[in-house]
């Protein structure tokens, strides 16, 4: 297992998180299209932090065990939190409330997603993609 984390404070940090994500995805053996998907997912999550939580981190984990290869992206922030997680997962919600932007899209780019959030404390979004 290999884990990197990038603190997101400026837009350049988004670029850095993307870069690390792409490297790790490539190392695991994801093809170009999947690399682009993983990077876009990272970008969306980092952008949400940058726009709505102001400060947070993106963690990128590369898991390589026998017969299983996957990448885990975790976005952690101490932002305002999400009141109704179920709503954020719905398409079309992004227009009405801050943090929802692109979450269902990220969910579709990746294979799994878990959101934990407490209002006033922050949000953790963990998403994974397996190499097939």
């Amino acid at each position: 297992m290999f884990k990197t984390s990038v603190e997101i404070m400026t837009e350049w940090d988004i670029v850095e998180a993307r870069q690390i994500g792409r490297q790790e995805a490539k190392m695991l053996g994801f093809n170009t299209v999947d690399q682009a998907r993983i990077t876009t997912a990272i970008s969306e999550l980092a952008r949400n932090i940058y726009l709505y939580a102001e400060v947070g981190t993106i963690e990128i984990e590369r898991i390589e065990t026998e017969g299983e290869k996957r990448i885990i992206i975790t976005a952690v922030d101490k932002g305002p939190g999400i009141q109704d997680v179920r709503k954020v997962m719905q398409d079309g919600y992004s227009t009405s409330g801050g943090l929802g932007a692109g979450i269902p899209g990220v969910n579709r780019l990746m294979d799994s997603m878990v959101i934990q959030s407490n209002v006033g404390e922050g949000t953790t979004i963990k998403t994974e993609k397996w190499l097939r």
Partner: peptide
């Protein structure tokens, strides 16, 4: 491909 990923996201949202 990078450019199209974004389109793909929108396309899938539209479909859902």
């Amino acid at each position: 491909i990078e450019v199209m990923v974004q389109y793909g996201m929108t396309h899938r949202a539209h479909q859902s």
